[in-house]
Design a protein around this nucleic acid. Sequence first.
DNA 1: CTCATGTTTCAGTTGTATCTGAACTCAATG
DNA 2: CATTGAGTTCAGATACAACTGAAACATGAG
Lengths: 156, 156
Amino acid sequence: MSEGTADARAEYVRRVAAYWENGGLTHAAGLILGHLMVCEPAEQTQAELADALDLSMGSVSTQLRTLTAAGMVERTRQPGSRAAVYQVPQDMWIRILGTETTRIAGLRALADAGLAVAPPSRRDRIGSLDQMVRFFEHEWPLLEQRLDEFLRKEGS
Amino acid sequence: MSEGTADARAEYVRRVAAYWENGGLTHAAGLILGHLMVCEPAEQTQAELADALDLSMGSVSTQLRTLTAAGMVERTRQPGSRAAVYQVPQDMWIRILGTETTRIAGLRALADAGLAVAPPSRRDRIGSLDQMVRFFEHEWPLLEQRLDEFLRKEGS
DNA sequence: CTCATGTTTCAGTTGTATCTGAACTCAATG
DNA sequence: CATTGAGTTCAGATACAACTGAAACATGAG
């Protein structure tokens, strides 16, 4: 039965990896993320990850740096232990949603630059982009606010 | 001056392509999308796109199919003309936002599957994913509703 | 029905991202 | 201050996605 569970976990890890590959991560990064979602204990060393996922230390090192930079993994050093441990931060999703602001800003830049080069008589296309960006510039902060409230009410 | 404008447009097209490449599209698809944002007329044939962007007909054909499937480009056939023309639909952004629902559903599946394989004592990680998904399952439809209102008020 | 134009498909090429393994750096411990 | 284990870096191998060009296929016009 414990083997069955191990298989199920491995299968789950692959599913998570597949999901995130569509989201721009590499396969290895997805595997790490999936493993960190269900492993026991929650904190894992690079060696443990490499071993469990059958990846080289090099890959794990590189991907962990990417994931750490993206705020999807947290590195902590337990005092008195040489090895650093990695885990998914509790607020991973809040961090990810925070990056949406950057994407909206990118669209804002595209909309502004577009106005400058669009044929003067036919600005409807850029105009509709501008409209959409304005909507999100207004709504996204409100949504983040509601998320905060939601999480506070759930008491986590 | 008209050359300056042409250059500025080409530059803009590359910027749009760069933006969408981060969003998962290929370079060629991004170029097409960028061109269709500022070209005159707004409707373009495959041959015009291939010529303006220096792409092969094969690439254009393939990418247009992808973009059409994603709802980011619209194909129309003008009667009496053999060539089909392509353009960005006015409601492109609404269509794109509609696909978010699918992504949320994907996360829901991951959360549910995760509960089944997580170590019973340590469900906090999956729990926090589940929480986030619940939030968006509730909020996303409301956001789409507000978008509808917003667009109606702007009278487009 | 045949021709000409427009479009799709696909085998092959090219370019690039990813992974590995080995050499290297760093830091803690005896 | 030498040793050992952890982690990083990078050159080379591999795999894969994207693009091209040519050939097959469609469709409207004459």
